[in-house]
Design a binder for these strands. Structure first.
Lengths: 223, 223
DNA sequence: GCAGATAATACTTTATCCATAATTATGAAT
DNA sequence: ATTCATAATTATGGATAAAGTATTATCTGC
């Protein structure tokens, strides 16, 4: 099946990763029941590694294990998003602050390079490219901040956020808005203004929450 | 064996909880290899639920699963503690801020009551009582802040912190110091000064980190 | 006609078994 | 005597099977 078994990763981890992707792609929809037997047949594995994978996903908050009732993809409420984005603002803000203090010249160069990609993608209306560059930018900031636990928590929360639809996140005027916010963050970091960088990042995250809320609102309207 | 099966919790959860306690009690020491077979015999269960429990503990960061090498209790470094306490300061600080804004009269009453327990325990040198009241205070603040995800992340991190020795945390002058810090937090909350409450909580957490570092230093010295 | 109880079915949960991989120990050769 | 290679043992990881529990549907009684 997958011949690229370079790294001898445990099967349950493979399965967990596959399921994560299917959940993020909304192939497995929030609230949907996960049919263990069907999945074992689909992947050609037994139920043991599948169930171990589900345990892992459960403690990541991606699925909910109801005793004797089975496994369901977690449904994420608007309130959950409010709460998570509050935490994310704090954490990514701290990342921006620390990164501003710790960044070496080469780090800032790299950040400018990624930002240039962002500008380019925005200019040509390349939504996917913008999405990629955006992710790269945030990831680079976290890398510079050099706090593994901070990063770990951020990664965990981002997984949960992914449960809500993120596809059309950069539609409408959001792409331009996001670009402006990124410019502000980068500018603050280049100026070594840690406080301003933290503030800018916090507002950027809050802005992302608002954009998501708008999408949710338009979706409920449409339905 | 355990007749108190009031709640029909899954066996792997029972086992996970038992193991958590043994890890926190340092009965299973950091870095130690976990002998699956010995544990199955000890608990009188089969390996399947035990393995599922270990997967859960692994994604909580309490144990580390090395492929084909087995399972080891996670060793937590001083750097890890620095990083985690940084995040904890942020999160608990936010809790204090939100709680200050959201607290109703009854909530503040309850907080004062818990603080009175803290004062009493400190006065009589009751370390255990102080520990309990301290936990209750922080928990109550989190409860008032009413942000489930914030609480969830804090709980997760606190588990990892528990991997390091926390027993003698309130020895020496730390108990009095902690009491003073708690007074400052409570005072700020009663005065509805959210900013000051956040600041006080952050410094309280940072102070906790320093105390832990002192213990670690004295331990290395002694060894 | 409606409600309650019982039975059946389906799915979770646990246990046992087998295979594979890794590590350690022993023996032989240089 | 030391090092390398091979073999054996032990533990992990995956599969299959059996058992128990919960839910739903149907039938009977009121």
């Amino acid at each position: 099946m997958n011949a690229t078994r370079i790294a001898p990763m445990a099967l349950y981890q493979e399965v967990a990763e596959r399921l994560r992707e299917r959940i993020f792609a909304h192939e497995l929809k929030p609230g949907a029941w996960i049919d263990e037997q069907a999945l074992t047949e689909h992947y050609g594995i037994s139920r043991t590694p599948l169930r171990e994978a589900l345990k892992v996903l459960a403690s990541e908050g991606l699925v909910t294990l109801k005793p004797r009732r089975g496994c369901y993809v977690t449904e994420i409420s608007e309130r959950d998003l409010d709460e998570i984005f509050t935490v994310m603002g704090l954490l990514e803000g701290q990342c921006a602050r620390d990164a501003t203090t710790l960044a070496r010249a080469a780090d800032l160069k790299q950040l400018e390079k990624i930002h240039a990609d962002l500008e380019r993608a925005a200019g040509s209306g390349d939504i996917n490219g913008f999405f990629e560059a955006n992710q790269a930018f945030h990831h680079e900031v976290q890398h510079i901040a050099d706090n593994r636990w901070l990063q770990h928590v951020i990664d965990d929360l981002r997984k949960v956020i992914k449960l809500s639809r993120h596809h059309s996140l950069f539609s409408d005027g959001r792409l331009e808005q996001s670009l402006i916010e990124h410019r502000r963050i980068l500018k603050a970091m280049l100026a070594r203004d840690a406080h301003e960088a933290e503030l800018a990042m916090r507002e950027h995250i809050a802005s992302g929450r608002k954009a998501l809320a708008r999408i949710a609102a338009s979706r409920t309207e449409a339905a």
